[in-house]
Amino acid sequence: MNTLIIGGGKVGVYLAQHLLDHGHEVTLIESRPERFEKLRGDIDDKHLICGDAADPLVLERVGIRSVEHLVCATGSDETNLIVAMLAKMEYGVRQVVARVNNPKNAWLFTPVMGVDSAVNQADLTARMLATQMDPLLGGEIFEEDATCSL
């Protein structure tokens, strides 16, 4: 499984390490140089690229055309959307999964913007917290199907 992960924050790195531990092929792109230096201690250099994933040249350098799964996991919704858009429309990546940071932006994470499935982390966490408070509360105060669009 050839996976490209955008964003070397906690979420991106956590996912990358699990995929690598299970023998998957992974490349991770991080744009912030100081963050990139920190990543080099946790993940082997051959899986890391420092660059702006919204730049088509960077995507081409990591072989975007042969990527099967793209995970847009940066902390910036606009960056996640741009990369999703480029990957889907310009390079025909088979599956694009994106992280929604601000629940207000969830409406944008749709196939029109190149996103096949979105994970709305604030919504997901809030639901789980509510369910822990009271098993019925989650279903009571949250609307259906807002967490993941699959």
Binding site: D77, L81, I82, L108, M113
Partner: peptide, 16 residues
């Protein structure tokens, strides 16, 4: 001043 924000906004305006 953000290229990314401008592109997302433009795409929303056009497609949505």
């Amino acid at each position: 001043s953000s290229d990314d924000a401008n592109t997302v906004t433009a795409r929303i305006a056009r497609e949505m």
